[in-house]
Design a protein around this nucleic acid. Structure first.
Lengths: 120, 120
DNA sequence: TGGTATAGTATCAATTTGTATACTAAGGAG
DNA sequence: CTCCTTAGTATACAAATTGATACTATACCA
C-alpha cells in the first residue's frame, strides 16, 4: 500500500475522510481512465498507450504501479519475447466499477463538447 | 468555466474522456470532500476550515473558486461585518451527489482505520 | 487605541506531477 | 551483426500544485 499521510490530528476531524480516501485511490490524473478501460477486460501496456496517447510511458507505469500497490489492479508478466504484461482489475478493484461507471455517465451527460472539441 | 485543454488529437481516441472529464471536475485534492460536506446544506468558509483543518486557507479558496467556475457551487456573499460567505451546491452540483455518496460508501467500507468516520 | 472576528490576498518556497529523451533486455528476422 | 518488438528504467528538466506565513478590510467592543 502506498503511504497515506493524511496529517490528521487526534481530534476526530475526519468526517470527510471516506471520500478523501476514495479520491486518493482513484483520483490520480489518469487512474480513473485506466480503471475505466480495464472494466471491459484485461489490457496490455501498449494497449493503454494506444487508447490514451496523451499519457506518457512514465506516467502510465507510475499510475499502474500505484493502482497495483493499492490492490486495485493485477499485473501479470508473461515471460516471452517480446515481453507481454497484462493488467486487470482485482476483485477489490471491481468494487470500484459502480463509481467509475457513474462517473462515466455523468461525464457523458454533461460534457459539452462531446464529439470534437479540438480547437484551432 | 475553467480551461480544459485535453490535448487530444483528432484521432477520436476519447472513449475514456467522460471519466476524465468528471475527474477533472471533482478530482481536485479537496473538491470531493468539500462537495461531500455541502450535500447536507450550506457551509461557511470557516466551517470548512473547522471540518477539515488540514486544508490551508489558500487551497480552500482556490478549490471553492474552481468549483464555482465550473458551476458546481454557489457562493453568496453577505455584506456584513464581520463578513459572511455561504457556499452551497447549485442544481448542477447536486447532480454529482450520487457519485460523491457512492465514493463515501466505498471509502467507509474499505478504509482500514475507520475509527472515527461519519457521525450520521 | 488596541483587540476581536471573518473571509479572504499576496508572496515565496517546497513538493508533486508530468514531459522528453535516451537507454536496457532478450529472442527472432534478415 | 544489426534491427525489430515489448515493457519498461534512468535521467534531466519543466510545470503545476500545494503549503507557510504575513497581510488586508471593516465594524464592534472595551
Amino acid at each position: 500500500m502506498r503511504d497515506r499521510e493524511s496529517g490528521y490530528g487526534s481530534t476526530g476531524d475526519r468526517e470527510g475522510c471516506p471520500v478523501e480516501y476514495t479520491l486518493d485511490v482513484i483520483g490520480g490524473k489518469w487512474k480513473g481512465v485506466l480503471l475505466y478501460h480495464m472494466i471491459d477486460g484485461t489490457k496490455r501496456f501498449n494497449e493503454f498507450k494506444r487508447i490514451c496517447p496523451s499519457i506518457s510511458q512514465r506516467m502510465l507505469t507510475l499510475q499502474l504501479r500505484e493502482l497495483e500497490e493499492d490492490g486495485i489492479v493485477h499485473r501479470e508478466v508473461f515471460h516471452q519475447v517480446p515481453p507481454k504484461v497484462e493488467y486487470s482489475l482485482t476483485e477489490f478493484g471491481q468494487t470500484l466499477t459502480p463509481i467509475i461507471l457513474l462517473m462515466k455517465e455523468w461525464g457523458s451527460k454533461f460534457q459539452q463538447n462531446s464529439e470534437c472539441s479540438i480547437e484551432s
